[in-house]
């Protein structure tokens, strides 16, 4: 916990002490009860995106893509990020992954600031990103060998690789190349590779965006099944409202860029396991759906769309 407060103070000093809220500053000596409450809150926060802004240097000068993004995620939570294309969803995800460096603020995972990529934040990319010269098995093996070097022996690694491919129902194609399997299967392998890293947070950038509706539904069901077993902390980007409501514990809706930030957060309190057919008639489900749609198409209508 000490480390966290250190990082927080570091961060706040970097972002011109904006993080220190006024009541925090005025409370001279918090009572014991308040302390424990605060501690509880901090413990619940597993991953935190804190006061994060990013500027990309472009030929027309710096381009501020994100402005002051704040997000606290608990352990085991399934979060989806939704927003119009180009608003900065991938940028948020890449900052969490450590693939991009925030200009201001940063990311804290389990009380530690993260500023470089690592297997504790495994990424599933939109276009599967499997190595085409390796088989399904070898693609997962490459990651497992690298991540569990010296921690698992050979037999354990084989078992772990096969277990993860089993989870995504890909055991039948272990020795096929990516070019020999369908798009949906490739995405399954991509998910298996990420799960096999045993990440603290699973990051997915529109993982089903390039798939047809039926395949997408299959994969969503598989993902919910896996989630039931593994209870991963997941941050997933989507542009599909149904997908967001079906899968998420919370839906994070982003405003349009430039200088995009989080507009609203919607808690989805639907009981699990969720069944898409049953939910289709559920009034609560449809209410959540309507909320997201309203945000996207009324409050955050794209500028070019409103002009048209």
């Amino acid at each position: 916990m000490n480390a966290l407060s250190n990082v927080v103070s570091q961060l706040s000093s970097r972002s011109s002490a904006k993080t220190i809220s006024p009541d925090e500053a005025t409370t001279a000596s918090p009572t014991k009860e308040e302390m424990s409450e605060e501690k509880q809150v901090k413990e619940r926060v597993y991953l935190e995106v804190s006061n994060t802004s990013i500027e990309f240097p472009t030929k027309q000068g710096p381009f501020k893509a994100l402005d002051d993004v704040n997000l606290k995620i608990s352990r085991g939570e399934f979060i989806t990020l939704i927003g119009h294309s180009g608003c900065g969803k991938s940028t948020v995800l890449n900052i969490i992954a450590g693939l991009l460096q925030a200009t201001e603020g940063g990311v804290i995972l389990e009380g530690r600031e993260v500023d470089e990529p690592g297997p504790d934040r495994a990424v599933v990319f939109q276009n599967h990103s499997l190595f085409p010269w390796l088989t399904v098995y070898q693609n997962v093996e490459l990651a497992v060998k690298q991540v569990f070097k010296g921690k698992k022996n050979k037999a354990e690694m084989v078992e772990w690789i096969e277990h993860n491919l089993e989870l995504v129902h890909m055991s039948h194609a272990l020795h096929k190349r990516p070019s020999e399997i369908s798009g949906g299967m490739k995405q399954r392998v991509g998910i298996a590779r990420a799960l096999a890293m045993q990440p603290k947070v699973l990051l997915m950038d529109e993982p089903f965006g390039a798939l047809d509706a039926l395949t997408r539904a299959h994969l969503q069901d598989s993902l919910m099944e896996i989630q039931k077993e593994t209870h991963n902390t997941v941050v997933m980007i989507t542009h599909d409202v149904d997908e967001a409501v079906l899968l998420s514990d919370r839906i994070v809706m982003m405003t349009n860029g430039p200088a995009a930030t989080i507009g609203e957060i919607l808690e989805v309190e639907l009981a699990r396991p969720r069944n898409r057919v049953e939910l289709a008639d559920d009034s609560q489900y449809n209410h959540y759906r309507a909320e997201v749609l309203k945000f996207l198409y009324e409050r955050q209508r794209k500028p070019d769309e409103s002009a048209a």
Binding site: L99, G118, A122, V123, N127, Q146, R193, M197
Partner: peptide, 18 residues
């Protein structure tokens, strides 16, 4: 090379020679 392929390498922390 597809940027994401290199990113996979970065995520699993491959040494630069690898």
């Amino acid at each position: 090379i597809d940027h994401d392929l290199m990113n996979v390498g970065r995520v699993i922390r491959l040494h630069w020679t690898a």
